[in-house]
Structures are given as structure tokens and as C-alpha cells.
Design a protein around this nucleic acid. Structure first.
Length: 479
RNA sequence: GGGCCUCUAGCUCAGUUGGUUAGAGCAUCGGACUUUUAAUCCGAGGGUCAAGGGUUCGAUCCCCUUGGGGCCUACCA
């Protein structure tokens, strides 16, 4: 029947979907300018505004409507018989529904109850909604929200805030990088060989080349090629794809930031990461203390803690664990704790045990330093501690937010590491890396020493907003 | 992948211990109302109770299969 109203508008020559309407102002601008108006005041100022109708109260000779603009701000329109006349008032009551975009022009006033309003002298349909708005007084359930995000955005303040927080975060990251002379690049998403992380890829097929292609799991190996080529401060913010499970902290496609700094190392890149995140927090909330959706304040400020993986594990487990601890001893401990490790080696056992004992306690931002060598095939060995690599993971809210390396640039060692990975792959590890000859060739041309880091953008938003990953992604994958 | 729960009107939800016309609020339609704020008042319409199959005199309700969703668990960021 709303379709009938669309037709009726067109019949009357009123246009249900005009190309444009003559707005002179925006709702937030008018609110800003006249926000302090006393009740029952007039201004003598005429404006033309458009917005979506989110409340409608049609009474006899004076009708009220709340118009909402894209930022969620609202203003009331009053359509009175005295101002618009019989015919126009009747058309308003006949043809305007909740959810429509309408244009109104008239004087800015405040109602007797003090509500900032437009006393309409002229109105026009801006765009007719033929489907009804959902109930504004109950939260949409999660499935409806995710499947119809546009409705969620109209109805729920937090959904809008999240979109804007994300945009501000992205802009802030780019600004910080620009200040520090980093260059943004875009590297391939469709790759002949996937690499740069341990994950199962999505596989696709090129008709033109009749070959298997992979959606990238990480941009790392291309950004390192850029380093070889002399792009010495380089970053990329783009999507990665991993063919793995989805839950509150994992999505099959997710936005990733990677940055590389020639002549830096994992310490300098940790400092950079802290600055990037703190600047983003400042941009979103005006302070290093952010407020999560549930109302808790979370402090991202100050110098973040740095703990050693082996030391923190030893303390929590109550036994000394070092890079020299045998697989048998680690396995015994894992068995005792009920920690199952698939295709166990020293590195995997240490990481799993660390997650079991330490991870959940890390709410405050914490750099976990110095990882076992087996699980980190792209990282340089520690300058002074044998059996360990110069890698940190940044934990916030109990999840891994970012990771940073002193990047491995010795092509001979890199080849050995790839060979070890290939051996793991042969044993059935579906996430093991492949030997990437083209990348090795680039390394043989000498990559400068560098620090590098990768950070999940969706997770950064989770840290800033306190939400789950499906809320930080506007349109997450749904079946 | 495994386990548990769930799917009822446009939206959010009740409900039916298996029984004939399945309810509420908001939304919709008709009527009244010139200061309303989830306006109010009077009246009305709206459902393949996720889909398919089974048990039964009778299924929205019980059982099975399939699909969607959620939570926990495993793997990964």
C-alpha cells in the first residue's frame, strides 16, 4: 500500500523520487546554531532541511514529525493548517510515512515544550520508503542487525558511532604514518603463492591463465620486496582472507595493517605501534582513555608493559621454562594441564602453554617479547638470547592485536626456515608456509635490516570500542 | 569439526502440558484531535507458527531430516 502512495505522489505530479530537493542547511548545523532556544520562541530564520522520518504524530490540524539525518541528529518538523493550508496538510497526512525522506522548509522555532522545530511552510517528498522501518523501541536482534545493517544504522546509535570511529581510526593511522614519512602502497590480493603468515587460504581460479590463484593471507612478502626496492618506510592497510573459523574475534576477511621500517627493529616498531594506537584513541575519543560500548573506560595511555614469553610462562606455570626445555618435559606439562597441541614441537608447545597460563590475564596493553624460533619463520634470531626470535605480540583485552618483528633478511637462513616449514607441511600441517623462490630471490638482492609489524584493523576497533568483530565490520559475512 | 539452545505478524516478543477462530506492543489501514515527544482515544486488517517428512482422530507444539541463527568447545589473527 506504500507502493500505492508512491504512485499517488507521481499522479499528483509531486514526485516520489525527485532528483534533488533545495536544502539550505543540515540538521546538525541548525541544531548547533539554535540549540539554546527557549521554549515557544521564534527566530525569523527560514531554512530548508531534509531527513528521514523516525517519528510521526499526525494530530488534527497540527502534525509533528522527527527528521533524522545521517549522523543521527534529529529535528522536529511541525506542519500546521495555518501555515500550509488544507490541501497540503491533507496530502502530508495521506502520503507521508515513517521511514520516508522528506524535505521541509520553514522558520526555525521552538515548540511550547521547548523542542527545536521547523514550522513548515513548504514540504516535499525527498524519497518514499515503500517498506516500513523496524520498531524503533526495541533493539533489533543480532541476526536482523547484521543482515540489514542499513536498518541497524538508522535505528541504533552505537552502530553509527562504530562506523565513524572506524573512519576516524583509519584516518588517524594514515596521518601518523604520513607524519613519520611512511609511504602507503597496495600489493597483490590475488597471489600465485600465498605467504607471510600461517593460515589456510581461499583458493580461486584464473580463466585467462588457467591457473590456481590464492587470496592473500598477508601482504608481508610483497612489502618486503618493496623494502628491497628502496621503499624504506612502507605500509599497507587492506584486506586479508583466511579460510578458517569465524567467532567473536575472527572473520574470514579482515582488514590488516602492515608496516615496515628500514633500519628499525622490533623495539622501534613496538614504539611506532604504541604511537599509532594511542593517536587513534586520541582521534576517536579525544583522550588515550577510550570508553567501551558497555560504559567501561579503558586506558590505552602511557608506556605499555613488556613481558618475556618464557619468563611470564615460567612464573605462571611454577616451573622454569627456557628455549632449552625439552619437548618431552613440555609435552608432560601440557598433558598435565589438559592442553592439546597438534603436531607438537618445542615452539608450538611453548606458545600453547603460554596461552593457557598467561593470555587471559592480559587486559592492559602488553607486549609479549621473544618467541620460540619454530613458529616464526620470518623473524630474525635474537641478538643475545639463543633459541629465541626478536618478535613480540601485542595483547589487549586478552586478544592478540598486533605482532612485530626484527625482520629476517638473511636469504640463506630464510631458505632454511622455508625448508623447515615445507617439512611441517609434508607432515600434514595445512598452515605451513611454502618455499617462495621469487621472494628468496628478492632477499638475495639484500633487504635492509628492518622492523615490521602487522595489526588487525577490526581488532583495533574492538580495543577502542569494546565491541565484537562483527560489530566493527559494517557488513560481515553472513550465509 | 563436536556439544547445547533457538526459528511464531513488517519489528521486538508472549503462547499452545497435542484440540476447532494463534496473542501483545510498536508498525499498517479507517475515524477524532492545533503543542505532540514511544502522543492519546475509537474501530479494522495482517500469520504456510523456517522448510520437508513422520507419529496421531487431530501437529505451530512430539519425533526425524534439511536450512538459518546464537552460545560453548576445538583450530586460526
Amino acid at each position: 500500500m506504500r507502493l500505492a502512495k508512491r504512485d499517488r505522489l507521481n499522479e499528483l505530479g509531486l514526485e516520489a523520487y525527485p532528483v534533488s530537493v533545495p536544502i539550505t542547511d543540515t540538521i546538525p548545523a541548525v541544531r548547533e546554531r539554535f540549540g539554546g532556544l527557549e521554549a515557544d520562541a521564534t527566530t525569523g530564520v527560514t531554512v530548508g532541511l531534509a531527513g528521514r522520518i523516525v517519528h510521526l504524530r499526525n494530530t488534527g490540524k497540527l502534525c509533528f514529525a522527527s527528521l533524522q539525518s545521517g549522523d543521527g541528529s534529529r529535528i522536529q518538523a511541525m506542519v500546521s493548517l495555518a501555515e500550509v493550508g488544507d490541501e497540503n496538510l491533507d496530502l502530508w497526512k495521506e502520503l507521508v510515512d515513517l521511514g520516508d525522506h522528506v524535505f521541509v522548509s520553514g522558520e526555525v522555532i521552538s515548540s511550547r515544550r521547548g523542542e527545536l522545530s521547523i514550522m513548515v511552510s513548504e514540504w516535499k517528498m525527498a524519497s518514499k520508503a515503500v517498506l516500513p522501518l523496524p520498531n524503533m523501541h526495541n533493539e533489533l536482534n543480532e541476526e536482523t542487525r547484521v543482515r540489514n545493517r542499513y536498518l541497524d544504522l538508522i535505528v541504533r546509535e552505537q552502530a553509527r558511532k562504530t562506523v565513524f570511529a572506524r573512519a576516524k581510526t583509519m584516518a588517524s593511522l594514515r596521518e601518523t604514518f604520513t607524519q613519520l614519512d611512511f609511504v602507503e602502497v597496495e600489493t597483490p590480493m590475488l597471489q600465485v603463492m600465498h605467504g607471510g603468515a600461517s593460515a589456510r587460504p581461499f583458493v580461486t581460479h584464473s580463466n585467462a591463465f588457467d591457473m590456481e590463484l590464492f587470496l592473500r593471507i598477508a601482504p608481508e612478502l610483497y612489502l618486503k620486496r618493496a623494502l628491497v626496492g628502496g621503499i624504506e618506510r612502507v605500509f599497507e592497510i587492506n584486506r586479508n582472507f583466511r579460510n578458517e573459523g569465524a567467532d567473536s574475534t575472527h572473520s574470514p576477511e579482515f582488514a590488516m595493517l602492515e608496516a615496515y621500517e628500514a633500519y628499525g627493529d622490533y623495539t622501534s616498531i613496538a614504539a611506532l605501534t604504541q604511537k599509532l594506537i594511542q593517536d587513534a584513541a586520541l582521534s576517536v575519543s579525544g583522550s588515550h582513555v577510550v570508553t567501551w560500548a558497555d560504559g567501561t573506560d579503558f586506558d590505552l595511555g602511557g608506556e605499555w608493559d613488556r613481558i618475556s614469553m618464557y619468563h611470564s610462562l615460567s612464573v605462571a606455570a611454577g616451573v622454569e621454562i627456557t628455549p632449552a626445555t625439552s619437548v618431552a618435559d613440555l609435552q608432560a606439562l601440557a598433558d598435565r594441564e589438559g592442553v592439546e597441541v597438534h603436531l607438537a614441537n618445542h615452539g608450538k608447545l611453548v606458545e600453547e602453554l603460554w596461552e593457557h597460563f598467561v593470555k587471559d590475564g592480559l587486559t592492559r596493553p602488553t607486549f609479549v617479547m621473544d618467541f620460540p624460533i619454530e613458529t616464526s619463520p620470518l623473524v630474525k634470531e635474537h641478538r643475545s638470547i639463543p633459541g629465541v626470535v626478536e618478535k613480540w605480540d601485542l595483547y589487549v583485552r586478552g586478544f592478540e592485536l598486533a605482532t612485530g618483528y626484527s625482520e629476517l633478511n638473511d636469504p640463506v637462513i630464510q631458505r632454511e626456515r622455508f625448508m623447515q616449514q615445507a617439512a611441517q607441511g609434508a607432515k600434514g600441517d595445512v598452515e605451513a608456509m611454502r618455499v617462495d623462490e621469487d621472494f628468496l630471490k628478492a632477499l638475495e638482492h639484500a633487504m635492509p635490516p628492518a622492523g615490521g609489524m602487522g595489526m588487525g584493523m577490526d581488532r583495533l576497533l574492538m580495543a577502542i570500542t569494546g565491541l565484537g568483530i562483527r560489530e566493527t565490520i559494517m557488513f560481515p559475512l553472513v550465509k
